[in-house]
Simulated assay, not measured.
Amino acid sequence: MKAWLPALLRLAVLALLVVFITSPGWFEPLLKPLTENGAPPIYNQGSLLTLTLQHLRTVLVATVAATIVAVALAILVTRPAGAEFLPLSRSLVNIGQTFPPVAVLALAVPAVGFGEKPTLIALFLYGLLPIFENALTALTTLPGNVMEAARGAGMTGWQRLMKVELPLSAPVILGGIRLSVVISLATATIGSTVAAKT
């Protein structure tokens, strides 16, 4: 009988969150005691729902771009012709995690101006490392007997990549993408310091 209680509680919290996103003004009386010097409890920078959707869009664009570049780099360095680029590729993707996001924003603003673009650059750089490392790990640890069977079946390198390697690597690559999305969701909030709508 009490098994439905946690589900009901989760549903109530979700409903409360939806109401807060769509009508934050209703919560002003609750938040007013937390402010000082007559500051408004909720700054009206636009609809919270619109800002949330813009935040998610920024994360999506940066993650898609990082995924394309990181997976392409991982494929390149796992081929015989591109194996010598592995140290360079690793160094490039590690640069994104070396600098704090605020420093990336500070460097990007003079180059591309204020708004969403510096935030996209910071999120793109931060998203490369987990996707690249997971893709590299997945592509280099494929079962040898499966790869040998694909070669024995007469598949070309492109066919092996598309029909064997990438499908087998997909769960690990998706794990890297998921980690990148989590990092980006948290990091994208700093975009508001350079006038990005988040």
Rank of each mutant, 00 (worst) to 15 (best):
V146W: 15
T35H: 10
N94K: 13
A7Q: 09
Q54R: 11
T22H: 09
A138Y: 01
T193P: 00
A12E: 02
K117T: 07
A15C: 08
R178L: 08
E133M: 14
V13F: 07
R79H: 10
F27N: 02
M162H: 15
Y126P: 14
A196G: 01
V172M: 12
I190C: 04
N145Y: 12
L14K: 04
P6A: 02
T58Y: 03
G144I: 14
L8C: 10
L123G: 10
K197C: 00
L9E: 06
L185V: 13
P87F: 01
I21Y: 09
A153C: 13
G191M: 00
K197Q: 08
R57W: 00
M162K: 15
V71T: 04
A39K: 13
A106N: 01
A70N: 09
W4V: 10
L129Y: 08
F124C: 10
V146R: 15
V18Y: 03
I68R: 12
L16H: 02
A195H: 04
Q97D: 05
L166W: 03
E116P: 08
E36Q: 15
A122E: 10
A103W: 00
W158E: 13
S47Q: 05
I42C: 04
L5Y: 05
Q97K: 12
A196W: 01
G154W: 13
V181R: 14
E36W: 15
N145H: 14
T67K: 13
R160N: 11
T52S: 04
F124K: 10
P24L: 03
T63V: 15
K163E: 14
L179S: 13
A81T: 09
A72P: 15
N145I: 11
T193S: 02
A15Y: 03
A83V: 06
V71W: 01
M147E: 14
V59H: 06
P33T: 07
